[in-house]
Design a protein around this nucleic acid. Structure first.
Length: 464
RNA sequence: GGCGGCGUAGCCAAGUGGUAAGGCAGCGCUCUGCAAAAGCGCUAUUCAUCGGUUCAAAUCCGGUCGCCGCCUCCA
């Protein structure tokens, strides 16, 4: 499997550190508000990568941090006049609910920053001891001059870093003590109205970057396989993580850095002021299915800008319906008989092509094309299939879905006696040519999300 | 100023040297009591644009136009 490593800016063949195992760290949410669909594009991409690794039989240890202490969470708590933990817990719960709705596999650990203060302090202490960091006016800063590779990930020349945005930061009261503008804070000295923890280098709270370094090395060791996040994390967050971690441990931090491009909405950057800011809850309230959101956000290449529109979401839902109808038809094949070996070979080849496409830097569009080619090839032959044939194709769809996660197990509900009874009533009306009554029953069932299909083999039904 | 990305049908989107995948939408037809689903057929001589390299370019090189991102705490 080939993937684009931000560190080298080229496609590389994936080689795990320890055979059969993968250590995976993904940057999680800062829990000061509801996540938006842009966040989910990243989380869905990360889920895809993880699922594909699992598909190939790797044992994956996935860590996703929860930033529950930073400027924004503190500000929110102060605005609302409630304890920090109350604010963060609310949004942590909302975050997990959205992950479940989108069928994102849970991480093995969701470490919270506030639960890892000692680990972060130990890391800061190490950096101070090795003189990669210095204390100034109660805060501790990283001295980027000491790290030769600084800027490598972001492809930024340290000397040419424009002091534009940096100058604004430097004007911040707690920053002017730095030796160099580009130095970043590891530990922020105590300020009134902010939570703080005692530390040998002064009471205060952790900087943002240190949490990911401390928590990733705690759960995955000083050197692990893959680290992911949104492109905005490349600089400064991930650049700083590399600096902290490699200076503290003296070893390579991460082998592969994968970054997901942002999405825009209706052609413009998503922002609350433009009114094009969507949360998952907003979209579900408009009647869109979470799986349509998943399909849309996953169906174009992760390194390309994605223009999210409601029309696009509609189209994604339709494409998904085609896939679900295919599965539905397969499940209703009733002809007994042997499996056709030629058909089985076609299905096997299709799965290989699907997998090869995903393996090529996660080309989901190409992989979907492979799958739809198979669907288009099978559909005309649907009536000629045996149960054994159908079982083979359903197994294929399960494998595909193990990677994409777009079909929920609950899509096909158990037969419901009540529904069957209604259908029998409608059949009676149809036999008696009372079509008005028959249509009425069909409409009622549709209200309940039950779609009827009159086929030569009898009435079939499915949930919408 | 520095670094980087994108522009393929009405819409979404693969393809990165061998002659335009796939999905959605649309139109016609088959099936149906009517639908739905499914099927069949149709829908880019052309890949922002100009020029170059090549037997061959959407794919490589150069120019132009348009859009976008990053350069210290935004997924």
């Amino acid at each position: 499997m080939r993937l684009f490593n931000t560190l080298t800016r080229r496609l590389e063949e994936f080689r795990e550190i320890e055979k059969g195992k993968v250590g995976l760290y993904t940057c999680g949410p800062t829990v000061y508000d509801y996540p938006h669909i842009g966040n989910f594009r990243s989380y869905l991409f990360e889920d895809l990568v993880k699922r594909f690794l699992l598909f190939h039989g790797y044992r994956v240890t996935h860590v996703m941090n929860i930033t529950d202490i930073d400027d924004k969470t503190i500000r929110k708590a102060n605005e609302l006049q409630v304890p920090l933990a109350e604010v963060t817990q609310k949004y942590i719960d909302a975050f997990h609910a959205d992950l479940r709705a989108l069928n994102i596999l849970p991480a093995d650990v969701y470490p919270r920053a506030t639960a890892h203060i000692p680990e972060m302090q130990a890391l800061v202490a190490t950096l101070l001891e090795k003189e990669f960091a210095y204390e100034k006016d109660g805060s501790v800063y990283f001295r980027i001059e000491r790290f030769r590779d600084y800027g490598r990930l972001a492809n930024l020349d340290r000397a040419s870093l424009k002091p534009g945005a940096a100058a604004a930061g430097a004007a911040d009261a707690d920053e002017y003590g730095k030796e160099a503008v580009q130095d970043f804070v590891l530990w922020k000295g105590k300020k009134p109205g902010e939570p703080s923890w005692p530390a040998p280098f002064g009471e205060g709270r952790p900087g943002w970057h240190i949490e990911c370094s401390a928590m990733s090395m705690k759960y995955l060791g000083p050197h692990f396989d893959i680290h992911m996040g949104g492109v905005d994390n490349i600089f400064p967050h991930h650049e700083n993580e590399i600096a902290q971690s490699e200076c503290a441990n003296g070893v390579t931090f991460v082998n592969y850095w994968l970054h997901c491009q942002h999405l825009i909405v209706d052609g413009m950057k998503m922002s609350k002021s433009l009114g094009n800011f969507h949360t998952l809850g907003d979209l579900l309230a408009k009647g869109h299915a979470p799986m349509a959101v998943r399909y849309l956000l996953l169906s174009s290449h992760y390194r390309k800008l994605l223009n999210f529109t409601l029309d696009g979401l509609e189209m994604a839902g339709q494409a998904l319906a085609r896939i679900k109808n295919f599965v539905f038809s397969l499940k209703n094949v009733e002809t007994e008989g042997e499996a056709d070996p030629e058909l089985a070979a076609v299905v096997t080849a299709s799965l290989e092509a699907f997998s090869a496409s995903v393996a090529d830097d996660f080309n989901v569009s190409g992989a979907l094309g492979v799958m739809f080619d198979l669907i288009g090839g099978i559909n005309p032959r649907m009536n000629a299939l045996t149960r054994a044939d159908a079982a083979g194709i359903l197994a294929y769809m399960e494998r595909v879905n193990a990677v994409l996660g777009i079909l929920e197990p609950g899509d096909e509900g158990p037969l419901d006696a009540e529904i069957e009874a209604r259908i029998a009533l409608r059949e009676k009306a149809r036999r008696e040519k009372d079509f008005a009554r028959a249509d009425e029953i069909r409409a009622e069932l549709k209200e309940q999300g039950i779609i009827l299909l009159d086929t030569p083999a009898g009435v079939k039904w499915k949930r919408d």
